[in-house]
Protein backbone atom coordinates (compact mmCIF):
# COMPACT_ATOMS: atom_id res chain seq x y z
CA UNK A 1 0.00 0.00 0.00
CA UNK A 2 2.81 2.41 0.89
CA UNK A 3 6.38 1.91 -0.23
CA UNK A 4 9.08 4.36 0.74
CA UNK A 5 12.13 3.76 -1.39
CA UNK A 6 15.50 5.40 -0.58
CA UNK A 7 13.77 8.60 0.47
CA UNK A 8 16.16 11.47 1.14
CA UNK A 9 15.32 15.03 2.07
CA UNK A 10 17.69 17.81 3.05
CA UNK A 11 17.03 21.17 4.67
CA UNK A 12 17.65 24.36 2.72
CA UNK A 13 21.02 24.80 4.42
CA UNK A 14 22.12 21.39 3.13
CA UNK A 15 21.75 19.35 6.35
CA UNK A 16 20.06 15.99 5.83
CA UNK A 17 16.65 15.71 7.45
CA UNK A 18 16.02 12.15 6.30
CA UNK A 19 18.70 9.97 4.81
CA UNK A 20 17.94 7.08 2.47
CA UNK A 21 14.85 5.81 4.26
CA UNK A 22 13.09 2.70 2.93
CA UNK A 23 9.92 1.20 4.38
CA UNK A 24 7.14 -1.02 3.18
CA UNK A 25 3.65 -0.71 4.65
CA UNK A 26 1.29 -3.44 3.54
CA UNK A 27 -2.47 -3.63 3.44
CA UNK A 28 -3.84 -4.30 6.90
CA UNK A 29 -0.85 -2.74 8.67
CA UNK A 30 -1.05 -0.26 11.49
CA UNK A 31 2.48 1.02 11.22
CA UNK A 32 3.93 3.18 14.00
CA UNK A 33 6.73 5.61 13.24
CA UNK A 34 8.77 6.47 16.29
CA UNK A 35 11.61 8.88 16.89
CA UNK A 36 12.80 11.74 19.07
CA UNK A 37 12.04 15.39 18.31
CA UNK A 38 13.65 16.44 15.05
CA UNK A 39 14.34 12.84 13.99
CA UNK A 40 12.65 13.34 10.61
CA UNK A 41 9.19 11.87 11.28
CA UNK A 42 7.14 14.89 10.21
CA UNK A 43 9.37 15.45 7.17
CA UNK A 44 8.78 11.87 6.04
CA UNK A 45 5.04 12.10 6.67
CA UNK A 46 4.74 15.40 4.77
CA UNK A 47 6.57 13.89 1.81
CA UNK A 48 4.25 10.85 1.79
CA UNK A 49 1.21 13.16 1.92
CA UNK A 50 2.49 15.11 -1.07
CA UNK A 51 2.80 18.29 0.96
CA UNK A 52 6.58 18.50 0.64
CA UNK A 53 8.91 17.95 -2.29
CA UNK A 54 11.95 15.74 -1.76
CA UNK A 55 15.45 15.36 -3.20
CA UNK A 56 15.83 11.72 -4.10
CA UNK A 57 14.19 8.33 -3.80
CA UNK A 58 10.49 7.75 -4.36
CA UNK A 59 7.28 7.11 -2.49
CA UNK A 60 4.66 4.79 -3.93
CA UNK A 61 1.01 4.78 -2.89
CA UNK A 62 -0.83 1.69 -4.09
CA UNK A 63 1.89 1.29 -6.71
CA UNK A 64 1.73 4.90 -7.95
CA UNK A 65 4.56 7.38 -7.43
CA UNK A 66 3.60 10.49 -5.47
CA UNK A 67 5.97 12.40 -7.75
CA UNK A 68 4.42 11.23 -11.01
CA UNK A 69 0.77 10.86 -10.04
CA UNK A 70 0.21 13.16 -7.06
CA UNK A 71 -3.51 13.70 -7.62
CA UNK A 72 -4.28 9.98 -7.99
CA UNK A 73 -2.21 9.17 -4.89
CA UNK A 74 -3.86 11.87 -2.78
CA UNK A 75 -7.30 10.71 -3.90
CA UNK A 76 -6.88 7.40 -2.08
CA UNK A 77 -5.15 8.60 1.05
CA UNK A 78 -5.76 11.05 3.86
CA UNK A 79 -3.32 13.08 5.91
CA UNK A 80 -3.77 14.67 9.29
CA UNK A 81 -0.91 16.92 10.49
CA UNK A 82 0.28 17.22 14.09
CA UNK A 83 -1.36 20.61 14.43
CA UNK A 84 -4.81 20.82 12.89
CA UNK A 85 -4.62 24.30 11.35
CA UNK A 86 -7.94 24.43 9.53
CA UNK A 87 -9.75 27.24 7.72
CA UNK A 88 -10.90 29.20 10.76
CA UNK A 89 -13.24 31.39 8.70
CA UNK A 90 -15.35 28.39 7.70
CA UNK A 91 -17.89 26.56 9.82
CA UNK A 92 -17.22 22.92 10.57
CA UNK A 93 -19.82 21.72 8.06
CA UNK A 94 -18.54 24.12 5.38
CA UNK A 95 -15.07 22.69 5.83
CA UNK A 96 -16.26 19.09 5.62
CA UNK A 97 -18.35 19.91 2.56
CA UNK A 98 -15.33 21.60 0.97
CA UNK A 99 -13.27 18.45 1.53
CA UNK A 100 -16.18 16.41 0.13
CA UNK A 101 -16.17 18.55 -3.01
CA UNK A 102 -12.41 18.36 -3.42
CA UNK A 103 -12.36 14.56 -2.97
CA UNK A 104 -15.49 14.28 -5.15
CA UNK A 105 -17.43 12.35 -2.54
CA UNK A 106 -20.92 11.60 -3.78
CA UNK A 107 -23.52 13.79 -2.03
CA UNK A 108 -25.64 11.17 -0.30
CA UNK A 109 -22.60 9.23 0.85
CA UNK A 110 -20.98 12.44 2.05
CA UNK A 111 -23.99 13.40 4.15
CA UNK A 112 -24.23 9.91 5.62
CA UNK A 113 -20.54 9.70 6.53
CA UNK A 114 -20.35 13.22 7.97
CA UNK A 115 -23.32 12.46 10.21
CA UNK A 116 -21.94 9.09 11.21
CA UNK A 117 -18.46 10.32 12.16
CA UNK A 118 -19.64 13.62 13.67
CA UNK A 119 -21.97 11.67 15.93
CA UNK A 120 -19.21 9.25 16.79
CA UNK A 121 -16.86 12.08 17.79
CA UNK A 122 -19.75 14.00 19.39
CA UNK A 123 -19.35 17.27 17.48
CA UNK A 124 -22.51 17.22 15.33
CA UNK A 125 -24.07 20.13 17.23
CA UNK A 126 -20.92 22.22 16.73
CA UNK A 127 -20.70 21.78 12.96
CA UNK A 128 -22.63 25.00 12.31
CA UNK A 129 -20.12 27.10 14.29
CA UNK A 130 -17.00 28.75 12.94
CA UNK A 131 -13.88 26.64 13.30
CA UNK A 132 -12.24 29.62 15.02
CA UNK A 133 -14.55 28.93 17.99
CA UNK A 134 -13.38 25.30 18.30
CA UNK A 135 -11.01 24.01 20.95
CA UNK A 136 -7.80 22.26 19.87
CA UNK A 137 -9.43 18.86 20.47
CA UNK A 138 -12.50 19.78 18.43
CA UNK A 139 -10.32 20.90 15.55
CA UNK A 140 -8.45 17.62 15.79
CA UNK A 141 -11.75 15.72 15.66
CA UNK A 142 -12.88 17.75 12.65
CA UNK A 143 -9.58 17.06 10.88
CA UNK A 144 -10.04 13.34 11.55
CA UNK A 145 -13.62 13.39 10.21
CA UNK A 146 -12.48 15.25 7.11
CA UNK A 147 -9.87 12.55 6.58
CA UNK A 148 -12.45 9.79 6.87
CA UNK A 149 -15.34 11.04 4.75
CA UNK A 150 -13.68 10.05 1.49
CA UNK A 151 -12.94 6.57 2.84
CA UNK A 152 -9.19 6.52 2.24
CA UNK A 153 -7.28 3.32 1.70
CA UNK A 154 -4.25 4.79 3.40
CA UNK A 155 -4.31 7.04 6.45
CA UNK A 156 -1.21 9.12 7.23
CA UNK A 157 -1.29 10.64 10.70
CA UNK A 158 1.21 12.83 12.51
CA UNK A 159 0.80 12.51 16.28
CA UNK A 160 -2.93 11.80 15.99
CA UNK A 161 -3.65 11.31 19.68
CA UNK A 162 -2.30 14.65 20.89
CA UNK A 163 -5.17 16.84 22.05
CA UNK A 164 -7.84 14.15 21.84
CA UNK A 165 -9.89 13.30 24.91
CA UNK A 166 -9.72 9.63 26.04
CA UNK A 167 -13.07 8.76 24.47
CA UNK A 168 -12.16 10.28 21.11
CA UNK A 169 -8.75 8.57 21.23
CA UNK A 170 -10.52 5.26 21.82
CA UNK A 171 -12.93 5.93 18.94
CA UNK A 172 -10.02 6.73 16.63
CA UNK A 173 -8.29 3.47 17.55
CA UNK A 174 -11.45 1.51 16.69
CA UNK A 175 -11.70 3.33 13.36
CA UNK A 176 -8.03 2.57 12.64
CA UNK A 177 -8.68 -1.13 13.23
CA UNK A 178 -11.76 -0.99 10.99
CA UNK A 179 -9.77 0.56 8.13
CA UNK A 180 -7.17 -2.19 8.40
CA UNK A 181 -9.84 -4.90 8.54
CA UNK A 182 -11.13 -3.48 5.25
CA UNK A 183 -7.70 -3.98 3.68
CA UNK A 184 -6.55 -0.38 4.22
CA UNK A 185 -3.34 0.69 5.96
CA UNK A 186 -2.32 3.25 8.53
CA UNK A 187 1.03 4.93 8.98
CA UNK A 188 1.37 7.26 11.95
CA UNK A 189 4.00 8.94 14.05
CA UNK A 190 3.80 9.03 17.81
CA UNK A 191 5.76 9.87 20.91
CA UNK A 192 3.49 7.77 23.05
CA UNK A 193 5.30 4.44 23.10
CA UNK A 194 2.53 2.68 25.03
CA UNK A 195 0.08 3.48 22.23
CA UNK A 196 2.50 2.28 19.57
CA UNK A 197 3.17 -0.93 21.46
CA UNK A 198 -0.50 -1.79 21.89
CA UNK A 199 -1.90 -0.50 18.61
CA UNK A 200 0.72 -1.21 15.94
CA UNK A 201 1.48 -4.54 14.34
CA UNK A 202 4.63 -3.00 12.87
CA UNK A 203 6.91 -0.19 13.92
CA UNK A 204 9.87 1.76 12.61
CA UNK A 205 12.32 3.74 14.72
CA UNK A 206 14.14 6.69 13.20
CA UNK A 207 17.06 8.64 14.63
CA UNK A 208 18.67 11.71 13.05
CA UNK A 209 16.98 10.92 9.75
CA UNK A 210 18.17 7.32 9.60
CA UNK A 211 16.13 4.20 10.10
CA UNK A 212 17.57 2.25 13.03
CA UNK A 213 14.95 -0.48 13.46
CA UNK A 214 11.82 -1.67 11.72
CA UNK A 215 9.58 -4.67 11.45
CA UNK A 216 6.88 -6.47 13.40
CA UNK A 217 6.35 -4.91 16.82
CA UNK A 218 7.08 -8.16 18.69
CA UNK A 219 10.27 -8.68 16.67
CA UNK A 220 11.56 -5.17 17.31
CA UNK A 221 10.87 -5.15 21.03
CA UNK A 222 11.45 -8.85 21.78
CA UNK A 223 10.76 -9.57 25.44
CA UNK A 224 11.38 -5.99 26.54
CA UNK A 225 9.04 -3.07 26.64
CA UNK A 226 9.10 -0.80 23.61
CA UNK A 227 10.27 2.05 25.84
CA UNK A 228 13.36 0.08 26.92
CA UNK A 229 14.18 -0.91 23.36
CA UNK A 230 13.67 2.63 22.12
CA UNK A 231 15.93 4.12 24.81
CA UNK A 232 18.60 1.54 24.15
CA UNK A 233 18.55 2.07 20.41
CA UNK A 234 18.55 5.84 20.72
CA UNK A 235 21.45 5.85 23.17
CA UNK A 236 23.58 3.20 21.46
CA UNK A 237 23.33 4.19 17.84
Amino acid sequence: MLKISNFTKSYKGGKLAVNNLSLNIENGDIYGFIGHNGAGKTTTIKAIAGVMDFDSGDIFIDGMSIKDKPVECKQIMAYIPDNPDLYEHLTGIQYLNFIGDIFKVEKVKREKLIKEYADLFEITSNLGDLISSYSHGMKQKLAIISALIHQPKLLILDEPFVGLDPKAAHTLKIIMHDICKNNGAIFFSTHVLDVAEKLCNKIAIIKDGKLIASGKTEDVKGDNSLEDVFMELINNE
Partner: peptide, 11 residues
Protein backbone atom coordinates in the same frame (compact mmCIF):
# COMPACT_ATOMS: atom_id res chain seq x y z
CA UNK B 1 -20.35 33.14 18.59
CA UNK B 2 -20.85 29.41 19.01
CA UNK B 3 -24.45 28.29 19.04
CA UNK B 4 -23.82 24.55 19.11
CA UNK B 5 -27.25 23.64 17.80
CA UNK B 6 -26.39 22.43 14.31
CA UNK B 7 -28.61 19.84 12.71
CA UNK B 8 -27.55 18.00 9.59
CA UNK B 9 -29.36 19.17 6.48
CA UNK B 10 -28.88 18.66 2.78
CA UNK B 11 -25.44 19.70 1.54
Amino acid sequence: KAKSHFKMTEL
